Simulated assay, not measured.
Amino acid sequence: MSDMAFHPKATDTTLLRILQALADPVRLTTVRSLGLKDGVSCSVVQADAGLTIGKSTMSHHLKILREAGIISISLEGSRRLLHLRRADLDGRFPGLLDAVLTPPEGAVGTE
């Protein structure tokens, strides 16, 4: 199985791994961007979120999000589309994704 094909089972995701993945501002911004526009390419996420990081750095962040079970990546032609694993996360950790996508007003990390 190629590295791109690896998506952990929902039952294998842990809260600790998810929180560790979301602790990075770039990854948190990426997830929030996907919450607004799911099923888009990496370049769209980067542009929408205002991320100005290199391609290899973004790939590293996406790998961590994917391995944590937060996102999945599908292929459409030569494009890789990013998707939040909303159903899996809501089923395993109800309310977590909603809390991440809509942080309280004035919370750290909101601008």
Score class of each variant (00 low, 15 high):
Pro94Cys: 08
Ala5Ile: 03
Gly54Ser: 13
Ser74Trp: 01
Thr52Ser: 12
Leu89Phe: 04
Gly50Tyr: 05
Lys9Gly: 07
Thr13Asp: 12
Ala107His: 09
Ala21Pro: 00
Ile71His: 09
Asp3His: 10
Glu67Gly: 03
Asp98Trp: 03
Pro8Phe: 02
Val100Gly: 09
Arg32Gly: 04
Phe6Ala: 13
Ser2Arg: 03
Leu28Val: 02
Leu96Tyr: 05
Gly109Val: 11
Asp24Met: 04
Pro103Met: 14
Cys42Ile: 13
Arg86Asn: 08
Ala47Trp: 01
Leu34Asp: 08
Asp12Trp: 00
Thr57Pro: 00
Gly106Ser: 14
Ile64Met: 04
His61Met: 09
Leu97Trp: 10
Thr13Trp: 03
Ala5Lys: 08
Asp98Arg: 13
Ser33Glu: 06
Gly54Asn: 06
Pro94Arg: 04
Arg32Asn: 04
His61Thr: 08
Val31Lys: 00
Ala87Ser: 11
Ile73Cys: 13
Asp3Glu: 13
Thr102Lys: 14
Ile53Leu: 12
Leu62Ser: 07
Ser43Pro: 01
Leu34Val: 05
Thr102Arg: 14
Leu15Ser: 09
His60Gly: 09
Leu97Arg: 01
Thr11Phe: 01
Glu111Val: 15
Leu34Phe: 10
Arg17Trp: 01
Leu75Thr: 11
Leu22Cys: 03
Thr14Ser: 15
Ala21Met: 00
Arg17His: 09
Ser78Cys: 09
Leu51Arg: 04
His83Asp: 02
Ile18Cys: 01
Leu65Asn: 03
Val100Phe: 14
Val44Arg: 05
Ala23Met: 06
Arg32Ser: 10
Leu16Cys: 06
His61Gln: 13
Leu101Val: 05
Leu96Glu: 11
Ala23Glu: 10
Ala49Ser: 13
Glu67Trp: 00
Ser56Trp: 00
Ile18Arg: 04
Pro103Asp: 15
Ser41Phe: 06
Leu89Cys: 04
Gly109Glu: 15
Ala21Arg: 00
Ala49Thr: 06
Asp98Leu: 07
Gln46Ala: 15
Leu82Asn: 06
His83Lys: 07
Arg27Gly: 11
Ile71Ala: 02
Pro104Val: 08
Leu36Ser: 09
Ala10Cys: 01
Ala5Thr: 09
Ile18His: 01
Leu36Phe: 03
Asp48Gln: 12
Ser41Val: 11
His60Trp: 05
Val108Tyr: 14
Ser56Asn: 05
Arg66Trp: 07
Glu105Gln: 13
Asp90Ile: 06
Leu65Asp: 07
Gly50Phe: 05
Arg32Asp: 02
Ser41Trp: 02
Val31Glu: 08
Asp48Met: 12
Thr14Glu: 07
Ile53Ser: 00
Gly95Val: 05
Pro25Glu: 14
Leu36Val: 10
Val44Lys: 02
Ala47Phe: 07
Val40Glu: 06
Leu36Lys: 09
Val26Cys: 07
Met4Cys: 04
Val40Gly: 10
Lys63Asp: 14
Leu51Ser: 12
Asp88Tyr: 03
Ile70Thr: 11
Arg32Met: 05
Leu62Trp: 00
Ala68Met: 02
Val40Asp: 02
Thr13Ile: 13
Ser74Glu: 12
Lys37Met: 10
Val45Trp: 03
Arg17Ala: 15
Thr13Arg: 08
Thr110Asp: 14
Val44Trp: 04
Ile71Lys: 00
Val26Gly: 06
